[in-house]
Computed example of a mutant assay.
Amino acid sequence: MKIFNLILILFSVVFTTNESTISGYKPGDVATDFRLKSVDNKMYSMSDYKEAKGFIVVFTCNHCPFAVKYEDRIIDIANRYKEKGYILIAINPNDPEAEPDDSFELMQERAKEKDFQFPYLFDEGQKIYPQYGATKTPHVFLLDSRRVVKYIGAIDDNVEDATKVKEKYLENAISSLEAGKPVDVATTKAIGCSIKVKK
Rank of each mutant, 00 (worst) to 15 (best):
K168E: 10
E178S: 02
E83Y: 10
R146V: 00
K127P: 14
A179R: 01
L106S: 10
K50L: 05
K26Y: 03
K114A: 06
P96G: 13
F118Y: 05
S47Q: 09
M107D: 11
C61L: 05
F118A: 06
E178M: 00
D33T: 06
K166A: 07
R110M: 02
D72M: 10
A90C: 07
Y120S: 11
D102T: 08
V148S: 03
A67P: 08
I9N: 13
F141A: 00
T187G: 03
K168V: 02
D115F: 13
Q131E: 12
E171K: 03
S175P: 07
N79M: 10
D29G: 05
K53Q: 08
E71F: 08
R110Y: 09
T16G: 14
L36Y: 11
E105Q: 11
V159M: 03
F34Y: 07
I89V: 15
S145K: 11
I22P: 00
H139K: 09
Y44Q: 07
A154N: 15
K198L: 12
D115A: 14
E167F: 12
E178P: 04
M43Q: 15
I87D: 04
E99H: 06
P130M: 14
K166S: 06
L177N: 02
D161F: 00
G24R: 05
I128Y: 08
Y132W: 13
A162W: 00
Q126M: 12
V57L: 05
D144Q: 05
E113M: 09
Q108M: 04
D95W: 11
T163W: 08
K50I: 04
T32R: 15
E167K: 13
A78G: 13
P65A: 05
Y151W: 03
I22R: 02
M1E: 13
G125R: 00
S176K: 04
D48C: 04
A111G: 12
S103A: 07
K127F: 10
L106R: 00
K189I: 09
I77Q: 03
K189Q: 10
M1S: 15
T135R: 13
D101V: 01
N172M: 05
I7E: 13
K150Y: 01
V13L: 07
Q126R: 10
M43H: 14
T17V: 14
K181H: 07
T187V: 12
G85R: 01
L10T: 02
D184P: 01
V39T: 14
